[in-house]
């Protein structure tokens, strides 16, 4: 039974699934209200919710912030995998600390203070997920470009989203070759399981040998094509920058978004006051 279950989990967490989730996350949500917002406003919004919670200790306010970021994450339709990674991250950071603290005579107070910490971590992470996963890569890189981030980075972001599906497919094919032609050690006993794990790690490592050669073959054409398309020429031309960024426009929608966020934050403080009294 457990064997079957772990088998099916392993099946799900295949490269195929991974590729699907990352693509979904990148491109599957470009029609959400969040994705339509001006990337500059969103980046500033992230700056607020990524930093301010660290300065607060009020559980009510933090809870309010947390709820807001949960809502925005929901609206941005983030892929489940990303949320899973997020959950793992938060749990491993605070859950573990709590368990350890029990050894040092920790009690419910410890739990409460840990809850505050968890809220902070979670709010910041969700804010970053909303902005970086919710925006489509091109708008995100335009936003970063506007703030003066080097052009190379913004190109890298766009290119990463282009190349990722190709790379994933290639890796998947190589791993498949290993699975089909190789033979993994039996994993019934504990020793077998360890051997199996080592075999899998080795296979992933060795897969990078063919992957490196195949990618090298590709990157030559890519770089030549970039040259022909005048990429190098453009990176020093401010007029190109201006044309690129002229699509950014902050208007009513952004104003409403900012106003709603500010109102909610204010409300949180007010409620906290009332409850505090």
């Amino acid at each position: 039974m457990i064997e079957k279950l772990s088998e099916s989990v392993m099946d799900k967490v295949s490269i195929d699934f991974l590729r699907d989730q990352v693509l979904k996350n990148a491109y599957g949500n470009d029609d959400t209200p969040i994705a339509a917002l001006d990337p500059r406003v969103l980046l500033l919004w992230y700056l607020f919710f990524g930093i301010v919670p660290w300065f607060l200790n009020d559980v009510v306010v933090l809870l309010g912030f947390f709820v807001l970021t949960v809502v925005t994450t929901r609206v941005a339709r983030v892929a489940p995998l990303v949320l899973f990674v997020f959950a793992i991250g938060v749990l491993s950071q605070t859950g573990y600390t709590f368990v350890v603290s029990l050894f040092f005579e920790g009690n419910l107070d410890t739990l409460a203070s840990l809850l505050v910490l968890t809220l902070k971590v979670a709010t910041c992470s969700l804010a970053s997920i909303t902005v970086f996963s919710g925006l489509d890569p091109d708008r995100l890189s335009n936003g970063l470009l506007w703030f003066g981030v080097p052009e190379r980075l913004s190109f890298s972001i766009a290119f990463a989203y282009r190349i990722l599906p190709i790379l994933m497919e290639e890796l998947q094919n190589i791993l498949l070759s290993y699975r089909l032609r190789g033979r993994a050690p039996a994993h019934d006993t504990l020793m077998g399981k360890i051997r199996w794990l080592i075999y899998q790690v080795k296979v992933v490592m060795m897969s990078f040998y063919p992957l490196m050669l195949n990618t090298a073959k590709r990157s030559r054409t890519t770089v030549e094509a970039l040259e022909l398309k005048g990429y190098r020429y453009a990176s020093t031309n401010t007029k190109v920058l201006k044309i690129k960024l002229s699509s950014l426009r902050a208007g009513r929608r952004e104003a409403i978004f900012v106003a709603a966020s500010v109102a909610w934050v204010a409300l949180c403080f007010v409620v906290s006051r009332i409850v505090g009294l």
Binding site: V22, N25, A26, V78, V82, V85, F86, G89, S125, S128, I129, T130, V131, F132, S133, L140, R152, L153, S156, I157, A160, Y161, L164
Partner: peptide, 14 residues
């Protein structure tokens, strides 16, 4: 850059 873009920005773990 690759680490920043693929694992931090793409997965939103910035």
């Amino acid at each position: 850059t690759g680490e920043l873009v693929f694992s931090e920005i793409m997965l939103g773990q910035f």
